[in-house]
Design a protein around this nucleic acid. Sequence first.
DNA 1: TCTATAGGTAAGTCATGGCTTACGGAATAA
DNA 2: TTATTCCGTAAGCCATGACTTACCTATAGA
Lengths: 101, 101
Amino acid sequence: MAYGIKIEALAPPTRRAIFERLAAGPSAVGALAAGLPVSRPAVSQHLKALKDAGLVVETRRGTARIYSVDPKGVAELRDYFDRFWDVALDAYKRSLEGGDA
Amino acid sequence: MAYGIKIEALAPPTRRAIFERLAAGPSAVGALAAGLPVSRPAVSQHLKALKDAGLVVETRRGTARIYSVDPKGVAELRDYFDRFWDVALDAYKRSLEGGDA
DNA sequence: TCTATAGGTAAGTCATGGCTTACGGAATAA
DNA sequence: TTATTCCGTAAGCCATGACTTACCTATAGA
């Protein structure tokens, strides 16, 4: 899955807060909303965006939906920035050595 | 510097495109704009956002402003997702073992 | 079956911000 | 000094999206 949609999904502060809480452990929608200054539907919409981005997975238990972070999604972002780090540092070193742009 | 502002800075596709081109090597504003479907002022505004986020540094050469990626900024993002990866995988393993949320 | 719980969806509001054109300022060349 | 190049800033337009309330669905328990 593309990394672009993942970065965009983590940009809104509220959505990033939801994601970081899920990183501490799986949670239901209502429990998440109870600890945030937004309504439950807002949390639901954010979770849909995170799920579409491949950052979160959903499991059912009774009437509840339990959301958890998808380690594969996090791995993709981490790998992306690892590659980015390599090319960035390489370009940085070249700019110091060569001097020409 | 906070990682939140960095993630938000990389969310807009055009701004991410600018940043990735800079990762390949330093560049002036006009050269960047020439290869993108937006105006030069738009590129200028994106560069300001990237600079404020600590992802890019600016140097002068004549009337030109040469922009380069700031490896320290990339490192911060990479480290953030590394930590995130650790806690996410840990929570994932706990959810498999314990079973209780 | 009836009720309560849990949560996704629809529709609408409103602020944010990405983009444009127009303008102003700073550094080189003549 | 005058002109040219390169770029940042201001102001405005307009689409995007984050949030709300209202409504509907589905599962569990009595």
